[in-house]
Design a protein around this nucleic acid. Structure first.
Lengths: 130, 130
DNA sequence: CCACTACTTGACGTTTACGTTAACGTAAGT
DNA sequence: ACTTACGTTAACGTAAACGTCAAGTAGTGG
C-alpha cells in the first residue's frame, strides 16, 4: 500500500481550519510548494506535514519568515547538529519572549484587579447612600 | 499656591517615554485636547493625567478607541453608576482575554519544552556516537 | 448547450499605532 | 544676522497575515 493519497487545497484548508487564501499565501511565501496538475495545486503527504509544522510554529508565536527558515533547515539536512543548535537557540529566544509576555499579562491582570476594586468601592459608595 | 504649571509637548513626551508623534496622534484621535498658545500645544495638569490614563489603558491591552470611550465617560460624569457598570463590564472582558492569552502562552511554553527535549535527544544521539 | 462547482491569478484593502519625511514658523542665544 | 532648538501641519509609509473582490479557466451533471 503506497498510500499515494493527495489533497485539494479546499480539503487541506478544511482539515486544518484555515482559508484557501492562507494556503496560497503560504505558498507565495515559500512555505509550501505543492505539485500542480495544470494550474491546480496537488498536495501530497509531505505538504500536509509542512502545513502542520507551519501552523504549529504559529501557535508557538514564531513569525512566518522564522518558520520558513526552520522548516527549510529540516528539509535540507534533517538532524545536522549545527541546525539543531540553531533551533535550540531560537527556542530559547521564543521562550524568553513568551515568559516576558506572561509577566506583562500578569502585571496587567493585577492592575485590572486594582481598578476593579476601586470601581466597586465607588459603586458601593453611590448605591449605598442613595 | 495654584500650581498652574504647564508642559510642552516635548516635556510630556520625555516624562512618559513616548514620542511627539504619539502625543499628536492621541490629540488627533480625540484622546487629548491641550490648550494652544498660537499654534503650540500647552498641556495643563489635567492633560497629564489623561495621558497617564491612556498609557495605562494601553498597558492593560485596551485599544485606543475603547480607552477614549472610558476616559470620556469619566470626564462627563465621574462616578455615575451606569458608567461604572459599563467599565466593570469592560474590565471583565479584558480579564477574560488576558487569561485566555495566558493560557495560550502556557500551552506554547509546554510545546516549546517538548520540542526542546526532542532537539536535545537528537543532539545527544548525534554527538554521543561521533 | 448550459449551469454549477471548484479552482486559478492578480491586485487592492484591512487593521493599529504610530514612523518618517517635507516644508515651514518662531524664539532665544551669540 | 545667523544658528540652534523647538515647534507646527500635512500626508504618505510601515508591519503581518491574510480578506476580499474581479475576472477568468476547467471539469462534471443534466
Amino acid at each position: 500500500m503506497d498510500a499515494e493519497r493527495t489533497w485539494s487545497i479546499a480539503e487541506l484548508a478544511d482539515e486544518f481550519g484555515v482559508t484557501l487564501r492562507t494556503i496560497r499565501f503560504y505558498e507565495e511565501q515559500g512555505l509550501l510548494t505543492p505539485a500542480r496538475n495544470g494550474t491546480r495545486r496537488i498536495f501530497a503527504d509531505g505538504d500536509r506535514v509542512r502545513l502542520g509544522l507551519v501552523l504549529r510554529g504559529k501557535r508557538l508565536g514564531f513569525p512566518l519568515d522564522e518558520i520558513k527558515k526552520i522548516i527549510g533547515m529540516y528539509d535540507a539536512e534533517p538532524g545536522e547538529t549545527g541546525q539543531l543548535r540553531y533551533l535550540l537557540d531560537q527556542i530559547e529566544d521564543r521562550r524568553k519572549e513568551l515568559e516576558q509576555r506572561r509577566r506583562d499579562i500578569d502585571a496587567a491582570l493585577s492592575e485590572l484587579d486594582e481598578l476593579e476594586r476601586r470601581c466597586r468601592a465607588d459603586l458601593n459608595r453611590l448605591t449605598g447612600r442613595a
